[in-house]
Design a protein around this nucleic acid. Structure first.
Lengths: 343, 343
DNA sequence: AGCGCTTACGAAAGCGCTTTCGTACTCTAG
DNA sequence: CTAGAGTACGAAAGCGCTTTCGTAAGCGCT
C-alpha cells in the first residue's frame, strides 16, 4: 500500500512528453489516433522514467484485466508445478500476473475458487487437472465458466474435456494404451493397476487406454485387479500393499501417474521385491524426478511445461465459436523399471 | 474483463440496505462510526446478494492491496513449490491473492521482478531463496525493498539474512554441521562436497556448518574437494562425475541440497557404485521425494511448507522497529543412503 | 435554554487509468 | 475558395471503491 505521492503516474509521463494524458494512454496502448512521432516520444519517455502502469487503475477503467487465475489440484505436486512453470513463463513475457489457487481435488472447493477468481475480475482463468466423472459436479462448474465467458472472460483448461472451453488435452488414452502394449510386449499377463481416485476423468481415460491394449491381446481389464486409491504417492503405497497381498502372482503394476508409481516402488523396495526382475512398474507423466528414481521409471512423457504454455496461449487468442482442442502428444519412455515377465 | 453492467456493486448493496455508499463501505470494512444495528444489516444484505468487492477499485481507492507477491528461484523445484504451498494456504485463509514470480537464480532478473511487484502495488512481498554473497547485488535489492517498506509495504524473506526485512531462516549452518557429524561419526574421512553455485549464501552457510563439524574432528574443509556447480540435479551430476574422476578414494559425498543429491545418486548408479556400501550420500532439505529415492536419502529436514506459512504470517503482522527473525529448526533424517565408511 | 462534545451518518472528492466526445487542423474535391 | 472528410490531439467523464469533511442528532453540563 505504498503511498500515492511517490509513485510515477501516467500524467507525469504525459507531462514530460509534452502531451495530454489521453494521448499518452493511447500511445502506450498502441492504439491509433496518434502520430508515429508522438507515440515514439511517449514510449521513450516512459522507458526512461521506468514507468509501469498501475494495474488496478487500468483494470478499473475498463481495460483488460491483466491477471490470469490458475487453478491447480495441488501446487506442490510436480505435475502441477511444472505446468505452473510454463504458464508463468508465458505470462511474464506478456506482462501478465499469475494468481495460483489450490483446489485440493475437491470439486466443491474448486468451484469456490473459480467463483472467487471471477469475482476478482481476472481476465483469464486456467483450470488444470483432471475433471470429475460425476456430471452434476462438472455441470455446475461449466455453467459458471460459461457465464464468465459470455461476459468476456477467457478460459482454457488442461486435461478436462467437458468444460465448454479451449482445452489442452494430454493423450491419456493413447498413453495408457502404449503402457499396456509395452508390458504385454514384454510378456506380462498378470498385470495389476494402481489407479487414482475413482471419479477422475484422467483415471478413467488412462484406464480405457490400458483396456484397449489388453483387448487387442485378448485380455479383459475386468479380469485384472484395479485398485482405486488416492492419486498420490501415499495412494500408490496403499494400492501396492493391497495388490501384493491379494494378488501375489502379479508381475507388473501400472500406476496411473508417477506419484503413485513412486509409492509403488517404495513398497516393493520395502518388501525386497526386485524391479524389474520380479516385478515391472510403469508410471505416467514423466515428472522430472522419474529419471532419477531407482530403478529409473518407465513412464509416459507428457510435456507439462508446454501444456502450461499452450493453455495460456490458447486463452490469449480471441475466443472462437467452438472450443479449440490441442492434443499434447506423448512418448513412451522406457527406463529400468520394466523388463521381461519372469518365466 | 466481464462487463460492468452485470456485476454487483457496493452501491447496490448500500441501496438495498437503505444506507449510503460510505456507510456500507465502513460497515463491511468493520470500521467504526457505524451502529451495530446498521452494520449488521449491511453485512446481511451483502451476504444475501453474494457481494464481492472489486479488488481493483478497492486498491485504487487506497485500501490495502490484497495481493502478495512471492518471488522464488524456480517454481517447479520442489523446495520452492512446497514453500509456495504454505504461502498459498495462509493466503487463502486470509482472502489474499498470491502472485508468483520466477527469478531463475539471476540476481538482476530477481531485482526486476521485485521492482515490477512494487510497481504493481502489491501489499506484501515475499522473497524466497538464497541470497547472493556479492554485497553489491544484495545492496541494490535491499535498497529497493527498504524504500518499499518505508512507503508502507510489508516484506518477509525466506533464507536470506541481509535484506533488512523480517526473515525466516533455515538452519543452514547447523544442518551442515549435523550432516558433517553424521558422516564423521560413521567413520568417513575422505568426504567430498557437491556444492551449489558459488555466490549463494545458502551454499556458503551450509558449507560453513560442514567445516565446523570437520574442525571438531581435526579436519579442514580446505583439504577436501568442494565442487561448485549448479544448485540443481544436473549440477549434482556434473559434480559427482568430477569427484569420481579426480578423487576416486572418496567414501562420502555431501550434496548441499536434495536436487544435487539426486544427481549424485544417478551418477553413482550409472557407475554401479553401491550406496551406501562403497559411497555414502547425503542431501539437504528433505523434499518429499527424498524418502522415495533408492536408496532413500539421508538428509536434513527443513519444514518448507511451514516456512512459507511463517513468512506470510510475519509479513501480516505490523512492522516492528527491527527486523524479526525466525529460525526453522532442522532434523537430521537418517535413511539408507549413508552407512559406515568402507574399511 | 444554551454551550460544547461526541456519535452516526451522507455528500463528495479523489485513486490512476481508459475512452468518449469535441475541437482544431490538414487535405482533397468541387 | 470553401464544403466535407479525415487526422491528431485534449478535456472530461467515468470505472467502484475508500476516506475526508460536513452536518444533524443526541448527550451531559452549567
Amino acid at each position: 500500500m505504498p503511498k500515492p505521492g511517490s509513485r510515477l503516474r501516467l500524467v507525469d509521463v504525459a507531462e514530460r512528453a509534452g502531451v495530454s494524458l489521453a494521448t499518452a494512454s493511447r500511445a502506450l496502448a498502441g492504439r491509433d489516433g496518434v502520430s508515429e512521432e508522438v507515440a515514439d516520444r511517449v514510449r521513450r519517455v516512459s522507458q526512461e522514467l521506468g514507468y509501469v502502469a498501475n494495474p488496478y487503475a487500468r483494470t478499473l477503467a475498463g481495460g483488460a484485466s491483466s491477471t490470469v487465475g490458475l487453478v491447480v489440484h495441488q501446487v506442490d505436486d510436480p505435475y502441477f508445478s511444472e505446468i505452473a512453470g510454463g504458464v508463468i513463463q508465458v505470462a511474464a513475457d506478456q506482462g501478465l500476473l499469475v494468481q495460483i489457487c489450490h483446489s485440493g481435488r475437491d470439486p466443491g472447493f474448486e468451484l469456490r475458487q473459480i467463483r472467487h477468481l471471477i469475482a476478482q475480475r481476472v481476465g483469464i482463468i486456467l483450470v488444470a487437472g483432471s475433471g470429475y466423472t460425476d456430471p452434476r459436479v462438472e455441470a455446475e462448474t461449466k455453467a459458471e465458466l460459461s457465464a464468465y465467458q459470455n461476459l468476456g472472460g477467457r478460459v482454457a483448461v488442461i486435461g478436462r474435456h467437458s468444460l465448454g472451453a479451449d482445452a489442452v488435452l494430454p493423450e491419456n488414452e493413447a498413453g495408457g494404451r502404449a503402457l499396456g502394449e509395452h508390458l504385454l510386449g514384454l510378456g506380462h499377463r498378470r498385470i495389476a493397476v494402481a489407479a487414482g481416485t475413482a471419479g477422475l476423468t484422467t483415471v478413467t481415460d488412462r484406464l480405457a487406454g490400458v483396456a484397449s491394449a489388453l483387448q487387442r491381446h485378448g485380455l479383459d481389464l475386468a479380469d485384472l485387479p484395479v485398485v482405486h486409491t488416492d492419486f498420490t504417492r501415499e495412494g500408490g503405497r496403499v494400492a501396492a500393499e493391497q495388490i501384493l497381498c491379494d494378488h501375489p502372482e502379479t508381475t507388473a503394476i501400472i500406476a496411473l501417474n508417477d506419484a503413485m508409481a513412486m509409492g509403488v516402488l517404495a513398497v516393493l523396495r520395502a518388501h525386497r521385491i526386485s524391479v524389474p526382475e520380479r516385478m515391472s512398474v510403469v508410471g505416467f507423466d514423466d515428472v522430472s524426478v522419474a529419471a532419477d528414481l531407482a530403478p529409473s521409471l518407465t513412464t509416459i512423457r507428457l510435456p507439462m511445461t508446454d501444456m502450461g504454455r499452450m493453455a495460456l496461449a490458447l486463452a490469449l487468442k480471441p475466443r472462437s465459436t467452438r472450443p479449440r482442442r490441442r492434443s499434447t502428444g506423448h512418448t513412451l519412455v522406457v527406463r529400468d523399471s520394466t523388463g521381461p515377465a519372469p518365466a
